[in-house]
Design a binder for these strands. Structure first.
Length: 909
RNA sequence: GCCCAGUUGGUGGAAUUGGUAGACACGCUAGGCUUAGAACCUAGUGGAGCAAUCUGUGGGGGUUCAAGUCCCUCACUGGGCACCA
């Protein structure tokens, strides 16, 4: 009789809770620290499916393993609880999102505990708790009071800059973006408070500005670039248009260069870093000034300075200021109207480059030729200078435009020799030499340009016209955005009668009564979803501190997240914003490390297997999968609980009950009179009826089996379908482990016998391999090793405590409930006071090995030899071996390759 | 279009980084136990062949004594970016 996993789970989960087993020690701990963090979830109404815990289980194994290794492990969990679904539910039902959030978080917490995850729940918070978002708002205050100093390369207090302005005006200021300012100290003093603030807004790290934003009418809010895909909102697929609005923004562009660099001790997946680097999109080039027939010059940015002689026309974005200078050009007006009508999406998909000549010219800085200036959609206002020097000879888009408008195309680089042609005195130079030469000309001799670096990264929009988010701690004093005082934080989210925008289109917070501060109106937009998640990992270090965001002791002790587990989809969102906030806090001396996450592991997605019925297009009939091609059918998702997971046979009776509208339908069956469903692998989703809940698995097989199974599915970072059939393996393994310790009646059969060398060797090799696999995050092979160990014990009929007890410690990170129970039966009180067994290095080594012997690269046989055998010794042995003499009879040995401990290859002819 | 990752039995996946494939598990086959079934235990299991042996890591080519692993090329799958000058 095997133990009841339900009972054991409940027993130990209660034990852990009562004894606060996983509570991390404070910063005064003498132990070394290890901080393992999971990307905390948004608690949705659907609860967890088996895909969610994949990363949690992996990080939990690491946390438990590190505890056994003697580390003080911080392994917290919380909830990213601000967000759209709760708000939309509130709009529909009138229920306060706080309540929805609470209920959903409770469900999540319960589900997570059932899996036996060793979180320190004493540190839990939700981002929507006022006691937490107080500190999110506090960081907003910091950002508001900072500018980025390009000389010091760090954030600095805005008060320094104010002093500079009063003494020297805008001259020689080192503020990022400060070059746009131009005033004397006298003028500064004459400015009104409002005018001064308008200037400061141009340099603050969080600032208000009219911005062309991604406005989603259907969601009634502004979206960040990464929340929009191909002109549609990522959430809900609603259409998104460009609109000018007064918005709060984060000046993340100031940190573009610093965000590009990672310290050498950081271990992130390569793909993740590349994604971030592409997103930041640094390009080095030359900014050139072309004089025009108007008063204004035209600045362009190019990464190909060497093609300067190939410029035959200029193109500026339709939004470029130069375009507005043109008056009374009917064709241009029509064109601008046409552009204005088009959505972002249409503009991007356009491959025929329409454009209009503006009616005047620029002068080429070297040839002094007149170059016509055009405007076209393919040039973007928000990259570089919003204007390009067109080189149709070497740029596809410029070429397409030139062909469309019959403009000359000059080739300046010979394709064969890769050297310059048609470029006057540059002719014959290599691309590299020519680039240098042009830069020299531009910067020094002729002075028409300077080296420049451009980034694709844009400032991040920080306003949302939404209710369920952190209120922005700003009020408007005579129209001047002013911070509320730190002592008055948190600025709590007010109650409203409805969660919709007002009739005049203002955000829901505008509905709140008395939403004022010192009799002035408060900001009514709220922070975006990423605000709450951009510093939560720091707050976990010191979650109950009422006086500070993070105490000095906690910061010095915990330093950074050692291991961060989560999905790679956060590469350009959460992970980038978090690094940015962390860098600002680093500049302020509030955090110890410039980068917050030392190692990141991206877990893959567990996909669902959906079942499909095939309905004929006309007629009320379903066709079995084998015969679906004989009919014209449309697929229909059916709940996987109605389908046999192995045979894919449909339970027709229950299907008809599930969907009564199909009760009268006919079923065309196969030869065996069965209806077989089609299968496809896709994301687990409510709407596909393919969700497998961890709760049912835990109930049927136990939490330990679930944990082992999820780890055994494959590499942690791979996406893989949930394949329920193979859960039997880990389930049997758990049973087999039990049977090593207990007989059918549940009596302990473990003996105190002394272990043999062979048994010890197996144990110590396992201990070593498992430790290595865990460190390498190779959990699937680790589980394999555990299984091999148990198989070996069966073969040897070994029930010796000396061997089995250390094995339990090794297993306990994977299957904690079972191991606690068995260890208790062996007289151990509490896993907390035990440690991962040290292995004897000598016992893990073999002193002989199987040397493969091959001839001409073909393996013929192998022989057991001592580890350190020499080539001569091997050859001596071989002379006496029939298998060798047989092979070389009548042949000559041309060459012998002997690689110690690897192979002996004999080349014969 | 560009960048990255991948392609190994019926299935999920191993392979000490160039050392002679397929660990572990599922499934399947046979046997044992059982009145029977379930569970469990034992053995087998890439393909072909009675066998020796041959052949095999998406296709083609190459480097090497030796290639799943390195190079070139093509195909496919997944992910990211995409008028970024």
């Amino acid at each position: 009789m095997s133990m009841n996993h339900q009972e054991i789970q409940e027993k130990w989960q209660r034990f852990w809770e009562e004894n606060q087993t996983f509570k991390a020690e404070g910063p005064s701990s003498k132990k070394p620290k290890y901080y393992v963090l999971d990307m905390f979830p948004y608690p949705s109404g659907a609860g967890l499916h088996v895909g969610h815990p994949l990363g949690y289980i992996a990080s939990d194994i690491m946390a438990r393993y590190k505890r056994l290794q003697g580390y003080n492990v911080l392994h917290p969990m919380g909830f990213d609880s601000f967000g759209l679904p709760a708000e939309q539910y509130a709009i529909q039902t009138g229920q306060h999102p706080k309540i929805t959030t609470e209920v959903n978080a409770d469900t999540y917490r319960k589900q997570l505990k059932k899996i036996g995850l060793s979180f320190d729940w004493s540190r839990e918070f939700k981002t929507s708790d006022p006691s937490y978002y107080r500190w999110t708002q506090w960081i907003f205050l910091q950002l508001f009071n900072l500018y980025y100093d390009v000389e010091l390369k760090k954030a600095s207090p805005i008060s320094h800059l104010q002093k500079h302005f009063a003494l020297y005006g805008s001259k020689d200021n080192h503020a990022f973006n400060g070059h746009e300012l131009s005033f004397t100290p006298h003028e500064w003093k004459q400015y009104s408070s409002k005018q001064q603030e308008d200037i400061l807004q141009k340099v603050r790290l969080v600032y208000q500005d009219y911005q062309t934003v991604n406005w989603c009418e259907a969601l009634g809010t502004v979206l960040a670039n990464d929340e929009v895909k191909e002109g549609l909102s990522v959430r809900g697929n609603h259409s998104v248009v460009q609109k000018k609005m007064m918005q709060w923004n984060l000046r993340i562009t100031a940190y573009a260069e610093r965000l590009l660099h990672y310290p050498s001790d950081i271990h992130w997946p390569k793909a993740l870093m590349e994604m971030q680097q592409n997103w930041i999109g640094r390009s080095q080039g030359l900014e050139l000034t072309f004089s025009t027939e108007l008063k204004e010059n035209l600045d362009v940015f190019t990464t190909r300075p060497e093609t300067l002689y190939g410029v035959t026309f200029m193109v500026v974005a339709p939004e470029h200021p130069l375009v507005q200078r043109v008056k009374g050009n009917k064709e241009l007006q029509e064109f601008l109207q046409y552009v204005g009508r088009r959505s972002e999406r249409e503009r991007l998909s356009e491959k025929n480059y329409k454009g209009v000549f503006l009616g005047f010219h620029a002068t080429h800085p070297l040839t002094k030729k007149k170059i016509p200036i055009y405007t076209s959609e393919y040039v973007l206002m928000n990259y570089g200078t919003g204007a390009v020097m067109a080189v149709p000879g070497h740029d596809e888009r410029d070429k397409a435009f030139a062909e469309e408008h019959q403009l000359p195309i000059i080739s300046v680089i010979d394709e064969k020799t890769q050297s310059l042609i048609n470029s006057e005195n540059l002719n014959g130079l290599s691309i590299e030499e020519a680039t240098k030469e042009i830069i020299k000309l531009a910067e020094e001799e002729e002075g028409f340009g300077k080296s420049s670096i451009q980034y694709k990264l844009r400032d991040a929009s920080f306003s949302r016209q939404r209710y369920w988010g952190e209120p922005i701690p700003v009020y408007f004093k005579e129209g001047i955005p002013t911070l509320i005082e730190e002592k008055d934080l948190p600025l709590e989210l007010p109650d409203v009668d409805e969660y919709l925008p007002t009739s005049d289109g203002r955000p829901p917070l505008a509905r709140a009564k008395n939403f004022h501060y010192k009799n002035h109106p408060l900001e009514v937009s709220t922070m975006p979803g990423y605000a709450g998640s951009s510093s939560y990992f720091l707050r976990f270090m010191d979650p109950h501190n009422q006086d500070a965001f993070l105490s000095l002791e906690a910061m010095r002790y915990w330093q950074e997240v050692d291991l961060y587990v989560g999905g790679s989809e956060h590469a350009t969102g959460h992970l980038l914003y978090s690094r940015f906030w962390n860098m600002v806090l680093f500049d302020l001396g509030i955090v110890e490390k410039e980068n917050p996450f030392k190692k990141i592991v991206n877990q893959g997605m567990i996909l669902g297997k959906s079942s499909l019925l095939y309905r004929t297009k006309e007629g009320k009939t379903f066709v079995t999968a084998e015969k679906k091609d004989e009919f014209d059918t449309v697929p229909l998702h059916v709940d996987i609980s109605l389908v046999d997971p192995v045979t894919h046979k449909l339970d027709i009776e229950n299907f008809k009950k599930w969907r009564s509208e199909y009760a009268s339908y006919d079923f065309i069956l196969n030869e065996n009179k069965d209806y077989i469903c089609g299968q496809i692998v896709e994301k687990m989703s409510k709407s596909f009826y393919n969700i497998v809940s961890p709760d049912t698995i835990v109930q049927e097989y136990g939490a330990d089996t679930l944990r082992l199974f999820e780890m055994f599915l494959g590499p942690i970072d791979a996406s893989k379908p949930w394949n329920q059939g193979s859960i039997e393996g880990p389930y049997r393994f758990i049973q087999r482990v039990q049977r090593l310790f207990l007989d059918d009646k549940g009596n302990l059969i473990v003996t105190k016998e002394v272990a043999t060398v062979e048994e010890k060797k197996i144990l110590h090799k396992t201990l070593k391999k498992i430790a290595h696999d865990i460190e390498k995050f190779s959990f699937n092979t680790a589980v394999g090793q555990l299984m091999i160990f148990v198989n070996e014990m069966y073969k040897l009929s070994c029930h010796k405590e000396e061997i089995l007890k250390p094995f339990l410690l090794c297993l306990s990170s994977f299957a904690p409930h079972l191991c606690e129970e068995l260890l208790e039966k062996l007289g151990e009180k509490d896993l907390r006071f035990m440690s991962y067994p040290a292995w004897d290095e000598e016992l893990t080594q073999e002193n002989t090995f199987e040397l493969p012997v091959s001839f001409n690269g073909k393996r013929r046989f192998s022989m057991e030899v001592p580890l350190n055998i020499t080539q001569d010794e091997v050859m001596n042995l071989l002379q006496k071996d029939d298998r060798f003499t047989h092979q070389i009879t009548g042949k000559t040995i041309k060459k012998i390759i002997f690689v110690p401990q690897k192979i002996l290859n004999i080349v014969i002819s």
